[in-house]
Each structure stands twice: as C-alpha cells, then as structure tokens.
Amino acid sequence: MNTCTKVFLRQKAISGGRISLYLDFYPAIRNPHTNRMSRRETLGIYIYASPKNERERQFNASMLEKAEAIRCRRFEQLLNEQFDFLDKEKLRMDFLAYFKQKCRQKYQKWDCVLRHFEIYCKGKCRFCDLTVDFCKGFRTYLLSARRQRNNGKGPIAHNSAAGYWSTFRALLKMAYQEKYLRENVNDYLEKIEWKEVKKEFLTLAEVKHLVAIPCKIPVLKQAVLFSCMTGLRISDILQLSWEHIQMGQDGGYLIRMCTEKTEEETNLPISDETLALCGERSEGLIFKGLKRHMVNHPLKEWLKSAGITRRITFHSMRHSFATLLAANGVDILTISKMLTHKSVKNTQIHAKVVDERAREASMVISLK
C-alpha cells in the first residue's frame, strides 16, 4: 500500500531578526541532485520575525503566500510521481538547462555533446520534445556532424559520434530515473557501433627516451610519465591530490580515488619509482599548474623534439601502460582492474596488440 508523502511548510528563526521558510517532507524523499534521502528543502524565502509596520506585515503575507504555493506544487509533483500520473509541468521544463547542470558534474566530453545538441535543437528543447523520432534525429545528426574545433573542418570521427551518442543516451536514462520523462526513450534507440581503430602507444624504449628529453612545461612531462606508470586518464590526474596517495596494508603506496569517468572508487598500487614522479609531499593537488590545454599543442611539441612523430595523445599513455603490462606477462584481469575497466572486453584490445607483436617476433628466426 502506498504511503502518500505529506509536505509541510515550516519556519525557523535565524539571525538578523528573520525567519527562514522551508519544506518538511514526511516520509523523506530522494533528492534528484544528490540522490540522497532528505526531509527538508530550503526555499530561500525569509520573513520578518517581528514586523514593525504595515509594509513589513504585507511583505510577510506575500512571502507566506508564495511559500504556500510552492508547498502545494511540491505536493502535486510527489502525488503525480507516486501514483504514476503525468506531470505536465515537468514536461514543459527546459531540457537544455537540465543538460547544462549535469555537464557541471561530468567530464569534458559532456560539454562537447551539449554543444552539438544545442546546434541540433537550435537552442531550444523541453522535456516534452524528447520523442523517439526527435532523439533518432540527433543520432543521424551526429553521424554527419562537423567538428566544433578547427573552424568546423571535416566531420567528427565515427567513434567520437558513437561516444557522444552513448553519453546522450546516458543522460536520457538519468532524466527518466529522475522522473522528468514519462517513459525510457532509450528502449527505442539503437546504439552507434564502434569501429575498431589502431591504438597508438609508446614502447618502453620511447618512454625511457622521454625521461631524458627536456620539456618546456616540466609539470606536463611529470604527468605524462606518471600516466605511463599508472594508466590514469588526464581527468583523474588533474584532480589527483596528496590525500589520494595512501599507505596500503602490504606496506606499499597506492592511489585511492573515485575516477571521474567510471565514478567508482579504485585502489591502484604504485611503485616507489612512480611515487617519486609526484615530487615532495605537500598539500592539495599533486600536479600543480597542469592545465588540460597542455595535452594538445605543448605535448605534440615535446614529443616531436623527442623524435616521436606518430599521432600520440595523452590518452596514448594509458594505452602504453596497458600494453607494456601485457607484453611483460601481466594477466588480462589484473590489467583490467588497474585500468578500472568495467568489463574485460575493453582491456582485450591491448592483449591483441601484444599478440600481433608476438607474431612479428615469431618471424624473426628463420632456418632458411
């Protein structure tokens, strides 16, 4: 049997001779932004505790009327959700504002998807506009969309389109779970299949060579070598702080943090040599001064000065880490855990690279 949530308008005395108005839910409801159960919602509305004149009394009456209107609206929304009624007010809300709010909690790719979606919907989209056909249209758009960088020269890569589409579908799932959408549109949308591409990586000899090559931005060199030794993404290295470096039960050091992409806590053991790349222990961020833009042109310049002309990106350091582990006999499950992959399937590409190198090696010795 459903227990209908009750909504009460409460008052609380605060400083400055004011009273704060807030909503009290019973039983508690789940906050859609924090995903935690809560009984309170602060309205940001204040009234005079002891109105001194007619103007202040009228102000109090007006604010109380507005707060009561909000209380009634919240009760209606909860009733609609609890008994599966269609909340028309939510459907008229701005989906783009919701998208932007989610982007602030996510990583850079979400901003790219948002920019493309704003172009597709011409800057206007409500939740009620998110029909199956409308969303399918965005899928078609992504498959032929132009790049947002380099003055729009050339279409975005197929796998970029697949990644953007996957992110957009994840957003639709969130909106459905938070009851902004009446049905899960994802059930009717096909994914964009990924194409297998050659993943560039550095050999151990190249990594050792980079150690000896000076870089105009020392913190960039430090971060690149650290990624080669840990497989961490740039998004995680940018937020890595000294509090994440802890002593493990086995007496060695490890990185304990929640990775930005998977949003899951990981415990990644590191060697003393890797720890040394962090420099002297202090407070706050480890790679102070490191900016995301440094992994573009400055990284290319440094690699070029080292004689590396292949298309190597910062993410290639992650591939280098995995491939070097596989080449040295580390099993695929261990590599998968160290890369914080949710599935071993995502890790197998690195083992395949090693298999190809093994085939080449087998042809070196010939009796002919």
Rank of each mutant, 00 (worst) to 15 (best):
I286M: 03
K342G: 15
P298D: 14
T323K: 06
F314D: 10
L285V: 07
V295D: 11
L303V: 09
L324Q: 13
K300D: 14
K337T: 06
M338G: 01
K337E: 12
K291N: 14
A306Q: 02
H297C: 08
K288Q: 14
K337D: 09
T309D: 08
A322L: 06
G307Q: 08
I312R: 04
I308Q: 01
S343Q: 11
E301I: 10
G289V: 11
V295H: 08
G284P: 02
R311Y: 08
A327P: 03
L339R: 00
G307V: 07
M338E: 03
I335T: 04
K304N: 13
W302N: 12
K288H: 10
L285H: 10
S320K: 02
T323I: 11
T340K: 00
F321L: 06
I332P: 00
F321E: 03
T313G: 09
A322Y: 01
L299E: 03
K300P: 03
R318L: 04
W302K: 08
I286D: 00
T323F: 02
K304W: 08
I335H: 00
L325C: 13
V295F: 09
S336Y: 07
S336M: 07
R310Y: 02
F287W: 12
K288W: 06
N296D: 15
M317H: 05
L285T: 10
S336K: 07
K337G: 12
K288Y: 09
N328K: 13
A326N: 03
I308C: 07
A327S: 15
N328W: 05
G289A: 13
F314A: 05
G307C: 07
S320T: 15
G307P: 04
L333Y: 15
T323Y: 05
K342L: 03
A326S: 08
H293G: 07
E301M: 09
S305W: 00
R310M: 01
L324H: 12
F314V: 10
L325W: 02
I308T: 05
L333P: 01
G284N: 06
T340C: 09
A326D: 02
K291H: 15
H341Y: 00
R292M: 14
S320I: 07
R292E: 15
M338L: 13
A306I: 06
A306C: 05
I335E: 01
T313N: 09
F314M: 07
A326G: 06
F287L: 12
G329S: 12
H341W: 05
M338I: 03
K300N: 13
V330N: 08
K288P: 04
F314H: 06
L299T: 05
V330R: 02
P298G: 13
M338F: 11
T313F: 07
L290E: 14
A322F: 00
N328T: 15
L285K: 13
I286S: 00
K342D: 09
K291E: 15
